[in-house]
Design a protein around this nucleic acid. Structure first.
Length: 747
RNA sequence: GGGCGGUUAGCUCAGUUGGUAGAGCGCGUCUCUUACACAGACGAUGUCGCAGGUUCAAGUCCUGCACCGCCCACCA
């Protein structure tokens, strides 16, 4: 039915073969509609075979280097629309700079993303890590297989987007040279005293993921909790308040404000109490961090299970007693009543006990944020853990004039050595630096890079571990490498220079570092952007990039965040298949300003698909009216046509400025508007009469101006819509063998 | 508790340095005209969240407020 209808439409529309009446010209060979599917693979192959993705192969005019490293996608899954936006913007920048004569390098890579990949793998396969305790290598092999499968998909998606990445420089964070760079970085920072092993520091423990996580990997979920006010025992002089009574068996002190008249006389006295069958020795200390107005003004200090309390404890030399283990259960030290109970069960038991003893003075419901591990969702249990490595952010770095990491991080942005766009994120960044604590880099994840640290499991006492830091196994018997792996951001923090060959002194490093732009989503400004600045400051004394351009998050049609659990992920390749890569790119870029979230909508994709087709038909019309180009190029422009050329030159100047100032959405929109509503609707419409003119000068001038406008339009559109413009460019008579991708940007 | 963003046409969103509002989709009428119906011509629709202020002039700058959203800190 549909087919018949279509055929009828066609026949009524074109009763007599209308194309045959057209003048001779290559345009008549072109189909009526642009076909992205038929074009894209062919054009991408043409680009790849030209070798020009690799800046080393670019013609001589490309002198000044321009470089961007691609934020390496995690090999957890196929790319989503956010990555498509990233690829589109970065390819626009690279193609623009390449055409302007820069030696443009866009360096591709992927990230093993240790914790994220491991979590995703476990979820997808329903494998239990416990079953592999004795078979760690087997487990790693399975994840590697999973990761490589995703990597293959990802690299295909990047190509489908038209990304002009230099594949000859492709990197993966687990490549041998990348691992070597990580080891080198670790060793250097260790020797500089910037990496240290904590001895039982309180860490953020994720009982579900069974690993330590950094402060940045915690998300807070709003919730309610009961705040209990009670005394440890009847004869204890002060009452304390807590939402976590189960931790109180680990208390070693009560802190009050030093000037609090109510408690002043007890300060520095120690009391012995029996609390739920456990004998506690509680010292009352005066500490200015205590707010006398909150609760009773007295805090039970649990050094082992609270970061804040551990800080109080270190100020007063208090002992620490761990009572909760790594499975979020009470340990033996919690006493026979609580031992081996889950923390929530223990809480009930303690509350029952306190009620029976009449020790509770007050119960109230309060708002409380529950800290959860970002990846696994496990509730964070602060606890002391041995043999964990940290990056010291407050230690003076000798090679950097004695400035600390925190100072260095602050300085480069405040002094505008690194520009962050949109500017408001500078504040966000600086606020993070202000609150920065030592960076915990040890993870109990298996899929990742182990630190270059060796120890003797048999010979070493747990408390006094003998270890050595070196790339290779030390001489002698019994040495084994640490089982922990490093935070995935430790390796990606090196990305701008490890991908260029560091620690070797390569030509690439000299030519392309610091990179020009780091383009990424704003949600990894702390995880990644800040860590890259940190690593390059400390290890090579350079900034990693001159400008940070942050794009927003891509949301679904309802404005929701794209997530696996909502199942609202859209595969960019399915959109490309439906609308063409050029349309997807345009739709992602236009109407999306820096740092602001955007929504995907099929309407928008369709609109830009229509635009690609419009451009196609504009070109078809012009090519139909231009039999050859040589004579036309020699023709003289009429005054009127000169004006038209000037107007286009003005627009080009304008959009060039927009491009230079990272206003791609404006440049794209202006170009779109010009091509459709000025070039097609006005100039071409008016040209029809002139092309039919008996005056050969008018006709020649018209042909010349149309061709010029078309060529320039193709050039300025090329960064946005590389496929269709390249395809049309190759159809212009006289362009055989030319590649639009490296043609000169018009001015 | 601190900080940030948004509030502009029915919907989704642009609006670069202040000069009486734009795009896409949608809507109405007409149109096979030397390319394109994935099109063209014409058209309707906004007191630019609210209240003040600066200015010859404010969506655009300043102050306050409301609602929506985000980030950071985290008090036991």
């Amino acid at each position: 039915m549909a087919i018949i209808l279509f055929a009828t439409m066609m026949s009524t529309k074109y009763p007599n073969n209308s194309t045959s009446s057209l003048r001779a010209g290559s345009g008549q060979d072109l189909p009526k509609a642009y076909n992205p599917k038929e074009t894209e693979d062919r054009i991408y192959k043409l680009w790849e075979e030209s070798g020009y993705f690799n800046p080393d192969n670019l013609p001589k005019r490309h002198k000044k280097p321009f470089s961007i490293v691609l934020p390496p996608p995690n090999v957890t899954a196929a790319l989503h629309m956010g990555s498509a936006l990233m690829l589109a913007i970065e390819d626009v920048m690279i193609r623009f700079e390449r055409m302007r004569g820069k030696k443009a390098l866009w360096l591709p890579g992927t990230d093993h993303a240790s914790i994220a990949t491991e979590e995703k793998f476990l979820k997808d396969t329903k494998i239990s890590k416990r079953d592999y305790v004795a078979k760690r290598q087997e487990f790693i092999d399975l994840i590697t297989e999973f990761a490589l499968k995703n990597q293959t998909i990802i690299l295909g998606q990047m190509r489908a987007m038209g990304s002009s990445l230099d594949w000859s420089r492709l990197k993966f964070t687990l490549d041998p040279d990348s691992i070597d760079a990580v080891h080198e970085a670790f060793i250097r920072m260790y020797n500089m005293g910037l990496i240290y092993m904590g001895s039982g520091k309180v860490v953020n423990w994720d009982p579900r993921g069974q690993t330590v996580v950094s402060d940045d990997e915690i998300e807070y979920e709003p919730g309610k909790a009961t705040l209990y006010t009670f005394r440890y025992s009847k004869d204890f002089p002060v009452a304390i308040s807590t939402t976590r009574p189960e931790t109180k068996v680990g208390d070693t002190a009560v802190a009050v404000h030093p000037d609090d008249e109510r408690y002043k006389r007890y300060i520095n006295r120690t009391f012995s109490v029996n609390f739920t069958g456990v004998n506690l020795s509680i010292k009352i200390v005066g500490d200015p961090s205590v707010d006398p107005a909150f609760g009773t003004g007295a805090v039970g200090v649990t050094p082992a299970h609270s970061l804040a309390d551990s800080e109080i404890a270190s100020r007063h030399n208090l002992p620490s007693q761990q009572v909760i283990n790594e499975y979020a259960r009470m340990n033996k030290e919690a006493g026979p009543l609580l031992s081996d109970k889950k923390t929530m069960e223990a809480r009930k038991i303690i509350i029952d006990h306190l009620r029976k003893q009449g020790l509770i003075e007050k119960e109230e419901i309060v708002d409380q944020n529950i800290p959860k591990a970002q990846r696994s969702g496990g509730i964070i249990e602060p606890l002391p853990k041995k043999h964990q490595f940290f990056v010291n952010v407050n230690k003076p770095v000798e090679k950097r004039n004695g400035k600390t990491i925190r100072e260095l991080l602050k300085e480069v942005v405040e002094a505008k050595k690194i520009k962050i766009l949109p500017e408001r994120f500078e504040k966000v960044y600086l606020n993070w630096v202000e609150n920065l604590r030592d960076w915990s880099i040890s993870r109990q994840i298996w899929y990742g890079i182990r630190p270059p640290v060796w120890y003797k499991p048999q010979a070493s006492a747990d408390d006094n571990l003998e270890y050595t830091v070196s790339k290779t196994k030390p001489a002698g018997e019994g040495w084994e490498q640490f089982n922990d792996t490093l935070d995935t951001w430790f390796s990606s923090g090196l990305w701008t220079f490890s991908t260029l060959g560091w620690p070797k002194k390569t030509g690439d490093l000299k030519t392309y570092h610091p990179t020009d732009v780091l383009e990424t989503a704003y949600d990894i400004i702390f995880f990644w952007v800040a860590r890259m600045i940190l690593m390059s400051q400390v290890l090579i004394g350079e900034i990693p990039f001159k400008t940070v351009y942050l794009h927003g998050l891509v949301r679904d049609e309802k404005g929701r965040k794209i997530s696996k659990s909502l199942g609202n992920n859209i595969d960019p390749v399915s959109m490309i298949n439906e609308y063409g890569a050029d349309a997807v790119r345009m739709a992602m870029i236009i109407g999306t300003s820096a740092g602001n979230d955007s929504k995907v909508s099929s309407d928008k994709f369709r609109a830009y698909k229509h635009f690609a087709n419009k451009l196609w038909n504009i070109s078809r019309f012009i090519l139909m009216n231009i039999p050859e180009t040589e004579g036309i190029r020699k023709a003289k422009l009429t005054e009127q046509d000169k004006k038209i050329a000037e107007e286009q030159a003005k627009l080009i100047k304008d959009i060039t400025q927009d491009m230079e100032n990272f206003r791609f959405y404006l440049a794209g929109e202006k170009t779109y508007h010009y091509v459709w509503h000025t070039f097609a609707d006005k100039i071409i419409e008016e040209s029809k009469e002139k092309l039919a003119s008996k005056n050969p000068e008018i006709k020649a001038s018209t042909q010349k101006i149309l061709l010029e406008l078309l060529i320039n339009s193709l050039k300025i559109l090329h960064p946005f819509m590389p496929f269709v413009t390249e395809e049309i460019y190759s159809k212009i008579p006289g362009n055989k063998g030319k590649i639009l991708m490296i043609e000169e940007w018009p001015s």
